[in-house]
């Protein structure tokens, strides 16, 4: 195992996030292994060989063991895992996919994973996301590739009541998005005088 110190892009925001009220909770998810998956000639219904039945419905995600499988495109998925190292995940997937002309690419450090929870989190998201995130249309299992503020994100609905969302953002944009979220939440984090 690695002894080298890992540094999270949002390390400097941890204390600020921790002080937020429950209505607009922001949690930085720790280092998660992620791989971009292309099936190539492997039939989607054979994707169980990857350890998960990949979601076929556009803009959805499913649990995959201790991680998630996120639909990104007609032949593109994002697989996450908290049990494997990035290399283990990529190697395992490539072993299945390469013989079929598919591909798996380690993108663990490409994105940062945030979790937004609380009864006002949908109001915060509405300040910068043009999509309809009402629980009637965006409930657990839904995902979207969209923009939040001026950053591209993958948004995951983690609950049926709109109070729990996962956000995947490019690592280089993470600081911007963190600042943006804190600013967007100001109305709910400032106590009335």
């Amino acid at each position: 195992m690695a002894e080298l110190l890992r540094t999270h892009p949002l390390e400097a925001w941890t204390d600020t996030f921790a002080a937020l009220p429950a209505a607009v909770g922001i949690t930085v998810e720790p280092f998660v292994a992620m791989a971009d998956v292309r099936l190539g000639a492997l039939a989607p219904d054979e994707s169980a060989r990857l350890g998960v039945d990949l979601p076929r419905t556009p803009n959805t995600w499913v649990p995959a063991g201790d991680g998630r499988a996120v639909w990104l495109g007609p032949d593109e998925w994002l697989l996450t895992s908290t049990a494997e190292t990035p290399e283990e995940l990529e190697d395992r997937l490539r072993a299945v996919l390469v013989p079929h002309g598919g591909a798996a690419v380690d993108v663990s450090a490409q994105r940062v994973s945030l979790r937004l929870t609380g009864e006002r989190v949908r109001d915060v998201l509405a300040r910068g996301c043009a999509l309809d995130l009402h629980p009637r249309v965006f409930r657990r299992g839904a995902c979207a590739q969209t923009t939040l503020g001026l950053a591209g994100v993958v948004l995951l609905a983690l609950s049926d009541d709109g109070s729990d969302h996962g956000v995947l953002v490019r690592s280089s944009f993470a600081g911007y998005l963190a600042d943006w979220l804190l600013d967007a939440a100001l109305e709910f984090t400032t106590t009335e005088q």
């Binding site: 892009p9 400097a12 450090a109 690592s171 280089s172 944009f173 911007y176 600042d179 943006w180």
Partner: peptide, 18 residues
């Protein structure tokens, strides 16, 4: 709106920016 000052345009930084 809020797209002013630091939030006018995202600043992308690398892992060793600090």
């Amino acid at each position: 709106g809020r797209d002013r000052g630091r939030l006018f345009d995202p600043e992308r930084v690398t892992a060793v920016h600090g």
